[in-house]
Design a protein around this nucleic acid. Structure first.
Length: 732
DNA sequence: GAGCACTGC
């Protein structure tokens, strides 16, 4: 009988963690009768979910009608058939890898199974389930709270940046992977958790990868902790090997078949091919919406225009075609349009219309559109690439991976059988596309990750067990940067400065800005600038109104500092009470500024916690901007460019020729600038720059501007003179 | 004189 099984199962798991009492406060274990009936149907046992009146073990009250409706659906999910086997496997193994396809129900059900099996203790420990995206964490938590018939934020909750909907009562918590990593920094053994599910592990986000490495170290020290790695089909074997032969369980999905078509010949122009294919589908295929994958905003808008133009020329016996663009910087209202119904027939009894969504990768994982029957996949996306030698991250249009192509085609089979048109040959799919996209950890700077790992107490980075270790050169670059910023000493150990930097949810250089700012009494100003730099661009520049937008921005412009221009815009936004109209009239992105405000508040709290004074200079005094510029110099001394006699800027030490980005409001061509970022597009550009000088540089970063270790270049002479001036001043 | 795929703390 089910009930008996449950009791013995509870005993088994309590034997593992050696803490029998911990189970007594899990209501599932003290209410076996009500619990087992709730699951009877899926077991094929002699009790079914609707035959008994039941009590909610958490509230002690009768389950609501809604609970039973949902339960009926839950028990039909494929994962339900694996419940017993899964729990048994988890009891017998500390780490389990689960390969679950879309529609298996793994994300919502497996964490609940773990709760039901008694891992968490009400009031002290819980089960965590991580997600790569905030929306996923919140929406799944809400769904699961409904399924368990409890209030969101009580027994079931979520934690994401800026939002904590969890409490002492929370036994099941959905959270972003980054959030769990942050928590690990103050609780390195993750004692709050009895079981951790890393969901969507195949996406290989930076945070999930670091968590997996960390958990490799934590697991032996926490024999009572269970780890469930949940992944889509492709990488499960790799995870299994990484976790030393942890058992692998496969859970089938429930999706509709998708027929794949390839082109016979390679396509020369993928946008053109995508348009042609889309129009053919519209004219020849049965009803159903179309999803087209392209790489970026401009390309998408252009494609939409061409589709609309062509569709307008179609005879009236062809159904109407509505076209929607989709990319992340699109305002939310425009994004929501993709969910509207396809148009009906033009005349009663005529051919129904069709909806086409032309999207970036955002529709590959982040946003799901039901009703898509046709997918057009040209096989490209923009991907971030990091070049450690030049220390440059750039975006390149690159071929997607096989895994990505499969994910895209899967988007056609969510509600009914679908078709996917791949605009490349089958041979190309097999031979040219790599199996999986390179994980983020191999495509990113490591400075922030290294600082996080150091804070987590990982001293030996070289032997840290990464699933895919980053290139040694990338790690060296990170260690070097952290050492120059005083976050790590020459032995590579974390310093007081390093601890403070690690507290801030920012890139190390930005954290350093905040640490330096009180020295120049301008921490309030730097907080505003850092907040603006941590969100999408606050200045809008629609192509059709470029001139007006530039004029609006000119009101805020400071002629020797783009950073101060940002500060002015942010200040005016506050001064105008964060007014929507003010933002609109002045081409400011309200969404970004609002987000910046959130970030700033969070950073203020951290500054206070670290006892860093919040100070300002008088906005009318000349110190106001000067202090900011000195702070920027004091923290960004590794991102400096010098104007050569040839009229081209050269970055210090890295010797890259660069140009000021045309978006700058800095006048003329100043001799020295610090820059926020290096962007590689049609040219090497440095963007968001502030004027500085050799005197400030040698005064604030003598260890970096050390003449004995300074490459021969035009700037060296000025640095030498600055040292001489400094010595003269000192001798007076 | 030019574009910024997508996440996340």
């Amino acid at each position: 009988m089910v009930k008996k099984q449950k009791i013995s199962s509870g005993d088994t798991s309590s034997g593992v963690d050696g803490n029998v009492s911990s189970h007594t406060s899990n209501p599932y274990l003290s209410h076996h009768a009500s619990y087992s009936t709730g699951l009877g149907a899926s077991y094929g046992a002699n009790v079914t979910y609707d035959q008994h009146t039941e009590t909610n073990p958490w509230s002690g009250e009768a389950f609501s009608g809604k609970y039973h409706d949902i339960l009926k659906k839950r028990t039909k999910l494929p994962v339900y058939l694996f419940r017993d086997k899964l729990l048994k496997t988890v009891r017998e193994n500390q780490i389990v890898v689960i390969e679950g396809e879309t529609g298996s129900g793994k994300t919502t059900q497996i964490p609940q199974f773990l709760v039901e099996d008694g891992y968490p203790t009400l009031g002290s420990t819980c089960v965590a389930c991580t997600q790569p995206r905030r929306v996923a964490a919140t929406s799944i938590a809400s769904r699961v709270a409904d399924e368990m018939d409890v209030k969101l934020g009580a027994e079931v909750g979520y934690t994401i940046r800026f939002e904590d909907e969890s409490s002492d009562r929370t036994v099941l918590k959905f959270m972003t992977d980054g959030m769990l990593l942050r928590e690990a920094m103050s609780d390195p053994l993750l004692k709050r958790y009895k079981a951790i599910c890393l969901d969507e592990a195949h996406e290989r986000t930076l945070a999930t990868d670091v968590l997996m490495g960390l958990l490799q170290e934590v697991i032996p020290k926490r024999p009572d902790l269970k780890l469930i790695v949940m992944s889509a089909t492709l990488d499960a074997k790799k995870f299994q090997d990484y976790f030393k032969g942890a058992p692998l369980m496969k859970v089938p999905g429930r999706t509709h078949p998708v027929e794949i078509f390839y082109t016979a010949q390679p396509e020369r122009n993928y946008v053109e091919a995508a348009i042609r294919t889309t129009l053919q589908i519209h004219q020849c295929e049965s009803p159903g919406d179309i999803l087209v994958f392209l790489t970026g905003e401009a390309e998408i808008e252009d494609c939409c225009r061409q589709l609309r133009d062509s569709a307008a020329t179609f005879p009236s016996n062809v159904g109407e075609l509505v076209v929607y663009p989709l990319y992340s910087s699109l305002p939310p209202a425009a994004q929501r349009k993709i969910f509207s119904q396809a148009p009906g027939p033009r005349v009663a009894g005529g051919v129904p219309g069709r909806k086409v969504v032309v999207s970036t990768n955002i529709a590959e994982t982040s946003l799901t559109i039901d009703g898509i029957v046709y997918v057009v996949d040209p096989g490209f996306s923009k991907q971030k690439i990091f070049n450690p030698r030049a220390r440059v991250e750039s975006l390149l249009v690159s071929p997607i991976s096989q895994a990505s192509a499969k994910q895209r085609s899967g988007r056609a089979g969510r509600t009914q059988p679908g078709k996917c048109f791949r605009l490349y040959t089958e041979l190309s799919f097999k031979n040219d596309l790599q199996q999986a996209t390179y994980p983020e950890i191999l495509r990113s700077k490591m400075s922030s990750v290294v600082l996080t790992l150091k804070k987590l107490g990982i001293d030996d980075l070289v032997h840290f067990d990464f699933l895919d270790p980053p290139a040694p050169e990338t790690l060296m670059r990170a260690l070097e940067l952290l050492n120059y910023h005083g976050a790590l000493d020459d032995e590579g150990d974390m310093t007081e400065v390093g601890y403070k930097m690690a507290e801030m949810p920012l890139d190390p250089q930005m954290a350093k800005l905040l640490l330096v700012s009180p020295d120049y009494s301008c921490s309030n100003e730097i907080l505003s600038i850092v907040a603006c730099l941590s969100v999408p661009a606050i200045f809008m520049r629609p192509k059709e109104q470029a001139k007006l937008a530039d004029d609006a921005k000119a009101q805020f412009a400071v002629d020797d500092s783009d950073h101060c221009t940002l500060l002015n815009a942010y200040n005016e936004y506050l001064f105008n009470n964060k007014s929507r109209d003010y933002c609109w009239d002045n081409f400011l992105n309200e969404r970004s500024l609002n987000q910046a405000d959130n970030v700033r508040n969070q950073l203020v709290r951290i500054m206070q916690k670290l006892d860093l004074p919040l100070t300002s200079n008088d906005r009318k005094s000349s110190r106001y901007y000067t202090a900011v510029k000195q702070t920027l110099t004091g923290a960004m001394f590794m991102q400096v460019a010098y104007l050569q006699r040839s009229g081209v800027y050269m970055t210090i030490k890295d010797n890259q020729s660069v140009s000021l980005h045309p978006s700058t409001d800095v006048n003329g061509k100043p001799q020295w600038v610090v820059y926020e970022e290096f962007v590689l597009t049609s040219k090497n550009y440095i963007r968001t720059v502030t004027v500085t000088n050799a005197d400030w540089l040698v005064a604030s970063a003598p260890h970096y501007y050390d003449l004995t270790n300074f490459p021969e270049c035009e700037a060296k002479g000025e640095i030498e003179q600055a040292y001489r001036r400094m010595a003269q001043r000192a001798s007076k």
